[in-house]
Design a protein around this nucleic acid. Sequence first.
DNA 1: TAAACTGAATCTGTACACAATATTGGAAAC
DNA 2: GTTTCCAATATTGTGTACAGATTCAGTTTA
Lengths: 227, 227
Amino acid sequence: MQNMEAGKPTIESIAERINNAVMEHRLAPGSKLSETRMAAAFNVSRTKIRQVLAVLAKKGLVEVYPNRGAFIASPTVQEAQELFATRRLLEPEIIRNVIAQAQKADLKRLHEHLDKEKTARQQKNRRAIIRLSGDFHLLLARISGNRYVESMMGELCPLTCLIIAMYDLPQTPACPEDDHDRIVAAIERRDEKAAIELMLHHLEHIESALHLTSNHRDDVDWDQILG
Amino acid sequence: MQNMEAGKPTIESIAERINNAVMEHRLAPGSKLSETRMAAAFNVSRTKIRQVLAVLAKKGLVEVYPNRGAFIASPTVQEAQELFATRRLLEPEIIRNVIAQAQKADLKRLHEHLDKEKTARQQKNRRAIIRLSGDFHLLLARISGNRYVESMMGELCPLTCLIIAMYDLPQTPACPEDDHDRIVAAIERRDEKAAIELMLHHLEHIESALHLTSNHRDDVDWDQILG
DNA sequence: TAAACTGAATCTGTACACAATATTGGAAAC
DNA sequence: GTTTCCAATATTGTGTACAGATTCAGTTTA
């Protein structure tokens, strides 16, 4: 779809493809990323794939084990809790900054995004819904105008998608509410307190819908499963 | 000093060397990082240096220009202000977490660090002072127990050193106060309000000591300088 | 004198080849 | 039947070679 020219994809374009695949739950946590296959898939040399993996590792999206290869990260329960704690810290600040300095064009972009989410929900396009839900928070971060906070959110949102993929109940729809609409409404009437409150409830709703009680991966009791 | 074995430095070890050099003001903002020279200096191939540079670029410590090479970042005034705004957001949360869950061993580590800073000040070792000042905030972040906040601080501290190198008055000593001691004291008596207040004043003190009025780099008036 | 052009030298971008390590399947031993 | 060992295979780690872009000095020209 994107990068149709196929004329030498850049490191960033490849990294973003991986990023998108993760956000759309097309790459599951723990998936092995074989260098040779990726090189073939993107029609570049392993050298370049290697740089992509190094960048994604620094971003926290993949974990590299020496002489074993690279894998999509599998956040632990502990990591999930720390991640949500971080988002509860960052996103109120984002709201404050957005309300303080949002231009008309910014509000327009927010509404355009809400429309996209609405369309995706109507079409029951689950992948698009998940992806757009993350992008909403990323868009707010971008509008807030702090590049460090934005960069941080750019790491946390894909990881949040991974956490949802790992710990969500399969039947639970992702972000079913119109939370985003209400947050934008509060921003537009410059009601800082309400907007922050809505955002915090939104985050707590997402986190509470997860199964963060036991660690799925680190302490699997194979005896019990197979015995 | 470190990595004395010289037996194949790893990507992380090289990146940390660069990081330390920046924190000690031994690598100035805008310095060119020639791949060939670095490869020779660390006795590895350019391939590895390239990965190091990609990681450091993702971290924000170096800027790469296509076909031109990699350079130590030169934060703008705008970036400096956003950085301090971010630290004013993160560090109170760090204080809260440290007070909430610090063990005895953590307080011991803090005191050991304060001793190191004291020694460096007595020896008037400016490089060590700058480096240790940054490390203090990093140590607090580590104790706070949130890996995402810690990772963020790991990026912001070196950048802060770069900003000080760019915008500080040369004669101003770096962090001359005993601010750090007082912060630790407040943490020990679990006085959250005071500790946060001290931290915020500390950050504002650092920022206000800088010349963040005009951009040194982007709008240099060569006519005036040479005319 | 200053500006513009040209070519050599340097540096980055990329791919490929080889060495080192881990995984896997089968054979042998208990 | 189970476990252990070993060789074949596949994958990662690293260095080197070559192509393309940029820079800079020297020369030419207005």
